[in-house]
Amino acid sequence: MTEILARTVEVTRTYGSVTALDRVSLDIHAGELVGLLGPNGAGKSTLVNLFAGLRRPTSGTVELLGGSPLDPARRRGIGVTPQETGLPPALRVGECVDFVRAHFPGAVDRGELLDRFGLADLVKRQIGGLSGGQKRRLAVALAFAGNPRLVFLDEPTTGLDVEARHALWDAVRDFHAAGGTVVLTSHYLEEIEALAKRVVVIGEGRVLTDDTMEAVRGLVGVHRVTVTVPETPDLPGVIGVEREGDRTHLLTADADALVRELVLTGVPFSGLEVRPTSLEEAFLVITGREPQPA
């Protein structure tokens, strides 16, 4: 069993009457590249904020590197991305990096870090004058400034063009290949697919699915077959049913076979539509029907 770098045990976090996380237990092992996936408001950010020591759980425990995330010494081993809109505009890129590095005894070399994220030419520029993409790259670079064992990357490539996005993915892969642990949150399926080895889907404050990328890819193959039928026929291969007015949505892994079966039943149907479901959609429907042990 590899070392557990961070974990939550039965963590619940509420904001007033809103439950952001509901008895979530999650282990992050050394060397993992975990993708946290879920719609906005699902609880991803709350989970990351708990690990980073920004919030306390309402109940349950959060552990980081063998201690409490509220202990600054534990946080020497992690790196977090700030929101790029908040970077201090008056500071120069090099100064901002130096400022963050000063907090970590084992910080990485400034020049090396800036090179890694394509920021070397910008070292003397004031942050306020950078483009949105440059700020985003700087924000991600800051997460790596302290030479962390574990980084939390929150929507790291939002707003980047394709080239910059791939360069950043390469930097994340290099960090992981050298033994680093990454927790990546995104609501972009593409980004999670490109990077993560393990995928945790969060919805309505709960862990809906926690599995390898391969297993998750199988689920992405789910299609949605929509028809207008008087009553829902009983068909093989249907893994989820949703009714919306007179329309019936059937979720299936094999849309072709399902349509063939539908025709053979002789049920009068109209308005046949077949389209791939999004990962989130598939998860929410599937796990809503058959809750997985979280």
């Binding site: 980073a52 020591g53 920004l54 600054p72 010494a73 534990r74 946080r75 020497r76 992690i78 977090v80 700030p82 929101q83 809109t85 908040g86 970077l87 201090p88 963050v100 907090h103 970590f104 302290g146």
Partner: peptide, 14 residues
């Protein structure tokens, strides 16, 4: 008002 402030709270310093 800036998100930089919560970020600073994640750095290893009280």
């Amino acid at each position: 008002a800036q998100p930089w402030d919560p970020y600073l709270r994640t750095l290893p310093a009280g």
